[in-house]
């Protein structure tokens, strides 16, 4: 579904991604782990071109999307993204946050968009918060709304950029359980996270990044119980 070939990205003099190759199959849950500064978030953000790679290919559903003449907005409608800092639209209620893109981009009627949004809110356990503004929600609630907002566009893949890193420990669970359900429903997911237990449990494949390259990848069992590289062993010893 997503294929990345020889991806390179530099921030000024810093070479953040070095010839990275990655493949994500439909229905697969890929978890990217690694120390901070390893380039894992940048790699994720290159998948929907929030960061524009310097060279290489990002291929989504058979199309090279980092071409100049690709309508990236159309592509992004099929790729949901969830951010570390939630980024709910603070000028809109929870319901409006979820319905704005289906209404404006998919020409859904307000009634239909509301119906879908309330369904999604029920799924993430927040149906009673529809008319709240984001400022009135806890971090965990915000993140669950953010997931619902991304799902409202019926994406083919969901990208998660450290979705629980800004949360208090007791709120991490509620977000992870929503993500787990999503994974069991067969959603294709690419997740950058520091939650190793979650990675172990939900990931079909784990990717360990360091210094802008993929150092090791494999099943959770490969990565967590039989790590090969010293770098990965050293990284896992912190948890």
């Amino acid at each position: 579904m997503i294929e990345v070939k020889k991806l390179n990205k530099r921030f000024k003099n810093l070479h953040v991604l070095k010839d990275v190759d990655l493949k994500v199959e439909k229905g697969e849950v890929v978890v990217i782990i690694g120390p901070s500064g390893s380039g894992k978030s940048t790699l994720l953000r290159c998948l929907n071109l929030l960061e524009v790679p310097e060279s290489g290919d990002v291929i989504f559903e058979g199309m090279r999307i980092n071409d100049k003449d690709v309508d990236i907005n159309k592509v992004r409608q099929k790729m949901g993204m969830v951010f570390q800092s939630f980024n709910l639209f603070s000028n809109m209620t929870v319901l409006q946050n979820i319905t704005i893109s289906p209404i404006k981009l998919r020409n859904k009627s307000v009634e239909e968009a509301n119906r879908i949004a309330l369904d999604l809110l029920r799924r993430v356990g927040l149906q009673d918060k529809a008319d709240y503004y984001p400022s009135k929600l806890s971090g965990g609630q915000k993140q669950r709304v953010a997931i619902a907002r991304a799902l409202a566009m019926e994406p083919d893949v969901m990208l998660f950029d450290e979705p629980t890193s800004a949360l208090d420990p007791e709120m991490v669970k509620e977000v992870l359980s929503v993500m787990k359900e999503l994974a069991y429903d067969g959603m294709t997911m690419v997740i950058v996270t520091h939650e190793m237990n979650f990675a172990k449990e939900v990931g079909d494949r784990i990717i360990f990044m360091d210094g802008g390259t993929i150092v090791e990848e494999g099943t959770p069992d490969d990565i967590f119980t039989q790590p090969k590289s010293d770098r990965l062993k050293e990284f896992l010893s912190h948890f």
Binding site: K74, Q77, N91, I100, M153
Partner: peptide, 27 residues
């Protein structure tokens, strides 16, 4: 206005103009 607001709007598939109109300008 927090940069994340623009990123979130764009990640949903909104154009720059739509993001400005519905998200950035009101805030």
């Amino acid at each position: 206005v927090d940069k994340g607001q623009m990123e979130a709007a764009r990640s949903l598939g909104m154009t720059y103009r739509m993001a400005m109109r519905y998200v950035i300008y009101p805030q």
